[in-house]
Design a protein around this nucleic acid. Structure first.
Lengths: 243, 243
DNA sequence: CGCTAGGTTGAGGTACGTCAAGCTAAGTGG
DNA sequence: CCACTTAGCTTGACGTACCTCAACCTAGCG
């Protein structure tokens, strides 16, 4: 089966509701422009006024917030099938930047085209809004993680979430997935220092909950990992319902 | 001027785009049901499947996430004019609860009525989606605050944000506003212990940045407070644009 | 073989949490 | 009007989880 580049988006939508053949065709028919970004480069600049939205096709990106001190906090981990800035369509001005965390391939569509699509296919527009909303749910969960979970539980939670999100778009095996990122970036995801991130990872390794080598994460005991994380996937809203 | 109960919602929308007289009338004409909640009570239960959305009319509410240990992190501070669970319309199942932080008055509207309103007034629906999106922007900012700001800066940021949000719906004076909440709740907003929250407040008081007595917050030096917080209100998207 | 980026380790400091007690102001019953 | 209670704020003492700095190790790569 040929991958048009947006298969993960379609998978992501189909996890939430049925798509008609017409809807899928309309998505495919959009004027997608694909572009590769090497890791570390900026995909969308803070304060810019993009005229297009962008979809993660391959690889990982992040939303990043900076302080004047140079410290940064990553506020989202974007995986294939995620729109990085669907909200740009409504907000006009970006209030954060999007960075390629690994080499990645991004698909761009004009806002105008998305608006036309929404007008013609209100159901698709509802599903896009749903994606926005799920994004917000994830952020709420991250707030709880960063505010109240201990580092080991927080890291475990991040791993469970990422695994499930990737799995749901066909990008993970039941007990492992690719996540070729360094501990410095992991630290910025967790809101910890690099050193403590390293020690937290070792803690999970010592309990045989995670093996992480060469960019692939292996989960020998998902049950125990989920228990440590108090991971309850309801907030990902992966159960298809009529919406 | 008579306050129909939704004046803050209208103010909030008008901060982002012009509303026509018809649109305002349509909002007023919705079948609002108003109900008072004493502080500490649950307005929406986690895991419930609400058939209506609720609007904060008066007072303050919060979104809350809990861990098994009983610890909680508040993930949003809801002020008059905010919808507490507009996302409930799309998500079906609530993934967090909403609690009255102070005594408050809540307005309920059926999802069905909102759907009809959206169909008849697509522009209003776009603005509702915008509110959802701004909500998410605020959450991203909170993630940065909680992850990377020091407690004093974080608290200063929360105060600046709350002041501006209240001011934008006509509920604050230029240098003070009502926020009748205790330090225990403030701690759950910040992700700190009560003791440290208390000491952080004292720190701001000592620098003459905040006076907080009897439920009213007074800001003798907003400039300096904003500087400490590195507060940049762009993420609140309060500039009216055509959307 | 040397260089580099990233992972790992140790030592030491500090900012936070916890526990427990004391304080204050508002409310309640005599 | 005054004891008594109560909830919330404040303080101090102490422990610890996390940060910082600096060195070292390792694996890839030229």
């Amino acid at each position: 089966m040929e991958d048009s580049g947006i298969s993960s988006l379609i998978a992501s939508l189909e996890n939430r509701d049925r798509l008609s053949a017409e809807e899928k065709a309309a998505l495919e028919a959009l004027n997608w422009r694909f572009r590769d970004f090497p890791r570390g480069t900026e995909i969308i600049r803070d304060r810019s006024r993009p005229a297009e939205s962008c979809l993660i096709v391959q690889g990982f990106a992040v939303r990043a917030g900076y302080l004047r001190s140079g410290q940064r906090q990553l506020t989202a981990l974007l995986v294939p099938g995620d729109f990085a800035d669907l909200h740009g369509l409504l907000l006009k001005v970006m209030d954060h930047s999007v960075i390629a965390l690994t080499d990645c391939r991004i698909g761009f569509v004009d806002h105008a085209a998305l608006r036309r699509l929404s007008a013609d296919h209100p159901h698709l527009w509802r599903l896009f809004t749903l994606l926005l909303t799920i994004d917000a749910s994830i952020q709420r969960t991250w707030l709880v993680s960063i505010g109240r979970r201990n580092p080991a539980s927080h890291l475990a939670h991040l791993i469970c979430e990422t695994h499930l999100r990737l799995f749901s778009v066909g990008r993970a095996r039941p007990d492992e997935f690719e996540l070729p990122i360094g501990q410095a970036d992991l630290a910025d995801l967790l809101g910890l220092s690099v050193v403590h991130t390293n020690r937290t990872l070792q803690e999970l390794r010592a309990q045989n909950l995670v093996r992480w080598r060469g960019g692939t994460v292996h989960l020998p005991d998902r049950k125990a990992l989920a228990a440590l994380a108090e991971f309850d996937p309801i907030y990902l809203h992966l159960d298809p319902e009529r919406r």
